[in-house]
């Protein structure tokens, strides 16, 4: 499970990078992840494994990442500040490196109040920026936050997230600049539906010199139904669906909404990858992993069609 390929090699190349998201199961069945990863193999450069997404208990992202790698796909282990203090965070980061996880995506995480255990203690010992900073300190300085030295340093690629659409708009590019100073080498964004607003954010990043230090990977995904549309516009924090897209989806018969949503998603990808400073797309297809090849093919993003992990 060593060898070339994966996210690091893809980012070093000049082609469009594609990542996708795998949500681990709520049970102990490893097959679910293996099956999802197999569907993505050869079509993505890496797959993110979420960390108890939405503050709902799932198989750990570390276990999930190892399973994804075994299935032949480079894993991006997500790790949030919600459930672990700095001791556990550093421990899991080191453990991930030892188990061959080559990419980590570090974020603050949703508040437990929004998940299936609202009675849980929210930890937030570090924030997302501090976690990125901690990871860079472990890797580049070879030190824990205690100052103790690591004999063997981890070598993962460090990523983070940003929501370009959440207020205050003027601060969002600078906030990513701060994460990049802390150590983020790539960033995956919240769902992009409003391409114009996104392009403005990327333009600000270029002005601040952020895109030279950090690869911007735009989050995309199809809206499959009018129910999903109302969910995204009403309940998911920080997602903005522009009125034109909403009209387009509401303007077709019910049985055509899914196809229209997919078509819109493909068009969005094609527009996004032409924006200077955008390195790739992060596909969020929630449970429809078998659709990833189709989306990638229709968007005209060239793939090798073979495995990226040997």
């Amino acid at each position: 499970m060593s060898g070339e390929g994966g996210l690091r090699a893809a980012l070093a190349s000049d082609r469009v990078v594609v990542t996708a998201e795998i949500g681990p199961p709520r049970d102990a069945d490893p097959e679910v992840i293996t099956r999802k990863a197999a569907a993505l193999r050869g079509w993505v450069d890496a797959a993110n494994v979420t960390d108890n997404q939405g503050a709902n208990v799932r198989m750990s992202s570390l276990a999930g990442s190892v399973l994804v790698r075994r299935a032949g796909v480079d894993a991006v282990m997500q790790l949030t500040c919600r459930d672990r203090n700095r001791i556990a965070l550093q421990s899991d980061l080191i453990g991930a490196a030892a188990l061959g996880v080559r990419n980590v995506l570090l974020l603050t995480g949703d508040h437990p109040a929004l998940g299936d255990h609202p009675d849980a203690k929210p930890v937030f010992d570090l924030d997302g920026v501090q976690l990125v900073w901690t990871a860079r300190t472990l890797r580049d300085e070879g030190k824990l936050l205690s100052g103790k030295a690591l004999a063997t340093r981890p070598s993962w690629l460090i990523g983070s997230v940003e929501n370009p659409f959440a207020p205050p708009a003027a601060l969002r590019a600078r906030r990513l600049a701060k994460k990049v100073a802390a150590g983020a080498e790539f960033v995956q964004t919240q769902y992009v539906f409003d391409v114009d607003a996104f392009a403005q954010w990327v333009r600000r990043l270029r002005e601040e010199g952020v895109t030279e230090r950090c690869a911007v990977i735009a989050g995309v995904g199809p809206i499959r139904s009018l129910r999903m549309l109302s969910f995204l516009t009403g309940e998911v924090p920080g997602v903005h669906v522009p009125p034109e897209l909403e009209r387009r989806l509401r303007g077709v018969p019910a049985h055509r909404v899914e196809a229209e949503g997919l078509a819109a998603c493909v068009e969005t990808i094609q527009t996004l990858v032409e924006i200077p400073g955008v390195r790739g797309v992060h596909l969020m297809v929630f449970g429809h992993d078998d659709e990833v090849p189709d989306i990638v093919r229709r968007a005209g993003i060239s793939r090798k069609g073979d495995s990226d992990v040997d």
Binding site: G128, V129, F165, P237, H240
Partner: peptide
């Protein structure tokens, strides 16, 4: 270190 991504519009 600044606002999270969950601030609504």
């Amino acid at each position: 270190n600044g606002p999270c991504g969950g601030v609504s519009a």
